[in-house]
Amino acid sequence: MSWALSRRTVLAGSVVAGTASRRALAQAGAWPSQPIRLVVPFAPGGTTDLVARLVAAGLQERLGVSVIVENRAGAGATVGSEAVARAAPDGYTLVMSNIASHAISPAVYRGRVRYDPVADFAHIALVVSNPTVWVANPRSGIRTLQDAAAKARGPGGLDVATSGAGSSNHLMVVRMGQLIGVELNHIPFRGAGPAMQAVIAGQVPMMSDSLPSSVAHIRQGSVVAVGMASAQRHPAFPDVPTFREQGFDLASDSWFGLSAPAGTPAAIVERLNRETRAFLGSAEVRARFSELGGTPGDLTAEGYGDFVRREVALWAPLVQAAGATAD
């Protein structure tokens, strides 16, 4: 098994060697003294997964124990979240809480989600929030949201692609339709990649997307950014007006953060909050995130808890309006 040997070598070179000494050190203190499990309720490869791995690497360095990412996908991110809600509140099991698992899916899978997104978790820290951006194919003639509204009211209506049904992007399409007064023709795809391709190819004129998956295409000019659905203009795209500026009162960010089971000792939550914010606050991480179009979070543990509570209250009625149920 020669491959085995080489993989060891690589590991040893980059990861293991560094942690060995720290592990011995960590054993002295109370927490953390064993590896921490970070559950990502999505399949590997998505934005959440990637950010989780970045954060895991950062926390590993700061806490001195290994932080292992474990993917438990399924049922709109509720399978993994439920597993964590039921885990021992000892600070060794964390979840990447996010807009799907903690705000939208509990409403979509009503009655079948066996956890309370607020009460069953000790929310630790907001990691990143990504504004929603509406982009259009350059040949579609849509340059502003008013253009889009006009097209929606015209014959045939307006097709809008999203990364999937029940996503925050989908709910944005529903809310926008309510504001315009005409139902938009929602075209769901399996992920942002295929949806973006359909927009670039001109099969669908518009797309509601979270900024990181659009950044490159906007910069290249293969799509036009029509409106940014956030409170302020994004620093990386100062030319793109917000929805509010264009007369549509909509602001929505998708977000993810760290949470632990309810009952996790406050000292551990505080420590994790501190370390996460310190990691997110470093200039290099900030630059990397804003390059991608996201904003690193800087909330206290209570602040993040309140944030989740507000999001739950915000999305539940919208999910019902959209008619997205899992029955």
Partner: peptide, 11 residues
């Protein structure tokens, strides 16, 4: 043990 635990490090 050698393949799955030591090398691939599955959970």
């Amino acid at each position: 043990w050698a393949v799955f635990i030591y090398e691939l490090d599955i959970r």
